[in-house]
Computed example of a mutant assay.
Amino acid sequence: MERKELEAAVEAILFAAGEPVPAERLCLALEMSREQIDALCGALADRYRYDRCGLRLVQLGESYQLCSAPEHAPVIRKALEGRRPPKLSQTALEVLSIVAYFQPITRAYIDQIRGVDSAYTVSQLADRDLIEPCGRLAVPGRPIQYRTTQTFLRSFGLSTLEDLPELPQVSTEEGQAARALQERLALLRTQAESGAMED
């Protein structure tokens, strides 16, 4: 296939999928290497931006997706107002931030950080596909661990979790509490991994 045909094929696949498509699937479908697919998608994304198209080709981790250009958000919102999901509450944003920065994390640790029960909010975020279960912690009771999803990345305009902004500086006391929590989580993960190896 010629380059124009390959670009058209990528557009067709991503449009038909309507969700992120792993780069490896594009490689298989188009019989191309990962480097060639990345270069092709990069060139296509640049062309969309340069031509000021209504679409953008975005990379989400190891996947690619077609989405609308952010500058058209107001008119899209106006046209599709009835379909727009309700905004996230302050509580939901707080829980989502905790999951994003400390994932994988259990609900008990979310509750410990916030100081209140977060069961309803965790369930709500999972229903909106912003977080998802990602296994169980190897401790008594085997609690479910949660992580963010590709919908989270797309919703916040991130390609990977490394694009998250740095956590703000906190007071010495808060910093010590955060470090203690991170050390505790690291210890639990180590225990979980060693427990998994024994299984």
Results as ranks from 00 to 15, higher is better:
Lys4Thr: 07
Leu158Lys: 04
Leu167Pro: 11
Leu66Arg: 03
Gly18Thr: 07
Glu81Asn: 10
Leu44Pro: 03
Ser171Lys: 05
Asp199Met: 14
Gln124Ser: 12
Arg77Phe: 12
Pro143Leu: 05
Thr190Asn: 00
Glu11Arg: 13
Pro22Gly: 06
Met32Arg: 13
Ala92Thr: 04
Arg3Glu: 06
Ala16Glu: 08
Asp129Ile: 02
Ser171Gln: 05
Ala177Arg: 15
Cys27Gly: 02
Gln145Gly: 02
Asp111Ser: 03
Ile113Cys: 02
Pro86Gly: 06
Leu96Ser: 06
Ala9Arg: 14
Ala73Leu: 15
Ala138Tyr: 09
Phe152Asp: 04
Leu88Thr: 13
Arg154Leu: 13
Tyr48Arg: 11
Val170Ser: 09
Ser68Asn: 03
Met1Pro: 00
Lys87Thr: 10
Thr172Met: 11
Tyr109Arg: 02
Gly175Trp: 13
Leu188Asn: 01
Glu19His: 10
Pro20Gln: 09
Leu44Met: 13
Ala196Tyr: 02
Ala119Trp: 05
Ala186Arg: 11
Cys41Ile: 10
Arg84Trp: 04
Glu183Trp: 11
Glu35Gln: 12
Ser123Phe: 00
Arg184Ile: 00
Leu14His: 02
Leu28Tyr: 13
Gly82Leu: 13
Ala79Lys: 07
Cys41Tyr: 08
Glu11Asp: 09
Arg184Lys: 13
Val58Cys: 04
Asp163Pro: 11
Tyr50Ile: 07
Ser155Val: 00
Lys87Asp: 14
Ala108Arg: 13
Pro104Thr: 07
Glu174Asn: 11
Arg179Lys: 14
Glu173Pro: 01
Arg114Gly: 00
Arg154Pro: 01
Leu125Arg: 04
Ala69Phe: 01
Val139Gly: 04
Gln59Ala: 15
